[in-house]
C-alpha cells in the first residue's frame, strides 16, 4: 500500500521540496506547507542560535499519532512532518508540516492542528542562546 504519512527527525537541513514531493497526490486540490523557522529575537533579546534535542523514538511515535489524528478528523490524503535537531542559526528551518487535501480549508485546518499539537505533546526541547546566556524554552513559568 502507498505510504500516506512521512515522519522524520533529522540533524541535517530540512527540505520543503522533499515534503511537497511526498504529499503530491492526484486528488489533492490544496496543499498547505507550514515552515517553522528560527527567529532572530525573543521578547526583544537577540537570539544567536538554537539547539533542539529530541527523545527520538517517542518523538517519532507522537508525531505519527498527530498525523493519524488529522487523517481521522479531516479528509487528508497525505502528510509529512519533518523536525530538525541539533544546532540551528537564524532563518534555518526547524519544522515542516505538509498536508494534502481535496480542498484548501481542510488542509489549512489539519496543518494548524498538527503544529499546535506538536508544540504541546512531542518530546523535543529548544534551547535559545543569547549573548549573555541560554534558556530552555517554556521550562519555567
Amino acid at each position: 500500500m502507498e505510504k500516506k504519512i512521512d515522519i522524520q527527525i533529522s540533524d541535517k537541513p530540512l527540505s520543503e521540496q522533499t515534503c511537497l514531493e511526498f504529499v503530491a497526490h492526484p486528488g489533492a486540490g490544496g496543499i498547505v506547507n507550514f515552515i517553522g523557522t528560527v527567529r532572530n529575537q525573543t521578547k526583544g533579546k537577540a537570539v544567536i542560535k538554537l539547539e533542539f534535542e529530541a527523545y527520538v523514538p517517542m518523538a517519532i511515535s507522537e508525531m505519527r499519532k498527530i498525523a493519524e489524528r488529522t487523517f481521522q478528523q479531516w479528509p487528508v490524503q497525505k502528510m509529512a512532518i519533518h523536525h530538525r535537531v541539533g544546532t540551528l542559526t537564524i532563518g534555518e528551518i526547524a519544522v515542516i508540516i505538509s498536508v494534502a487535501c481535496p480542498h484548501r480549508k481542510a488542509a489549512f485546518d489539519a496543518c494548524s492542528f498538527a503544529i499546535d499539537t506538536l508544540k504541546e505533546t512531542v518530546p523535543i526541547w529548544k534551547k535559545e542562546f543569547f549573548e549573555n546566556g541560554a534558556v530552555w524554552v517554556a521550562a519555567h513559568p
Binding site: V95, L118, K119, V122, P123, I124, W125, K126
Partner: peptide
Amino acid sequence: VVLIPPVSGG
C-alpha cells in the same frame, strides 16, 4: 523510563 520536562518543539 524517561523524565519529560515541558516540551518546546516546532
